[in-house]
Design a protein around this nucleic acid. Structure first.
Lengths: 163, 163
DNA sequence: CATATATACATGCATTTGCATTTAAATATA
DNA sequence: TATATTTAAATGCAAATGCATGTATATATG
């Protein structure tokens, strides 16, 4: 889950090319790898902290609820939701369970497939999104958008889309 | 922790500039934000899966153990370790506890400060790093390094260092 | 020096996660 | 059609995490 800020130093203790693998790992690769994960984790942890400070649920709730909202009034099946967020089946099951119990989402029976159900947002759920977004947006803007040039942001997504 | 692949769609339901905040959030910003987190999370989850498949501990153990190893034979104090990895104090305390119990690290008393101790790696710990790295490296190479041009990797870290 | 405050680290307890497995319905196969 | 296989979703249990707090030592302050 966590990528050490100085993970590359381990590699640097060994001669290049590395004795054990077929790969020629360069410092450029490691620096990019580390910066990618360091920056992502740092930003996410700021978002989580700010949400918590505002007495709001974690970012994961926002993401899932947003996806449910986007599905509109027909709702979305949990297995479809799972394709859109990087969460395991069992965790999604319990997360939506919490959303439902908290009144932010609702399960509606699925006529075509009695094994499952569809999820829709409630008014309270939409309201939660509306309260969470300003916090989220502020962090994105202050810690991300405002620190990078427009051209760099375009480059960034262009490069990372290949991953 | 998780950033929805399509989080920006929520924003797109609203007119720009957004009615609630002082920020003018553009699609470029959101795309970059999403790609950053999506790619990071995807890569990390591949690493974790591969480590698990090889019956090896999670990446966090690698990072911490590596940091301990880097400190050399004098070891490192937990509070210093904490500055180098993005982990909370209480979780680091328990994680190092597990490392020690598993025989990968050792606590040595700290003469200058009786509140604390220093952590050093054991032979078994070094060996674990050596076994984990090939797995880790293979993922980095196959899913990251080989997918990006050298220049892009340099750009990537250059851009992200500003975060 | 005595007392207050800060720092290093650990821990009890509730919540969340991971893993394996279960339940139930849908689909494939013979 | 009967039986096997696959798929959707949930769940029991162990491990990990978050949060608040505890313990011990160090440092600052009157």
């Amino acid at each position: 889950m966590y990528v050490n800020i100085d993970a590359y130093a381990y590699i640097c203790n060994y001669p290049l090319p590395l004795p054990w693998g077929p790969f020629l790992m360069q410092k450029t690769d490691i620096n990019a790898w580390i910066e990618l994960h360091r920056s992502s984790q740092k930003l996410i942890s700021i978002v989580e902290t700010e949400l918590k400070n505002a007495d709001l649920p974690p970012l994961a709730w926002y993401d899932i609820l947003l996806e449910i909202k986007k599905a509109g009034k027909d709702g979305i099946r949990p297995f479809e939701l799972q394709n859109r967020v990087l969460i395991t089946q069992y965790n999604l099951s319990r997360m939506t369970d919490r959303l439902v119990r908290a009144g932010y989402a609702k399960r509606i029976p699925c006529l075509e497939d009695k094994r499952g159900h569809s999820l829709i947002t409630t008014r309270k759920g939409i309201n939660l999104l509306d309260r969470m977004w300003p916090i989220y947006e502020t962090v994105i803007d202050q810690h991300f958008s405002s620190k990078l040039a427009e051209a760099d942001k375009a480059r960034l997504s262009g490069i990372l889309k290949r991953i």
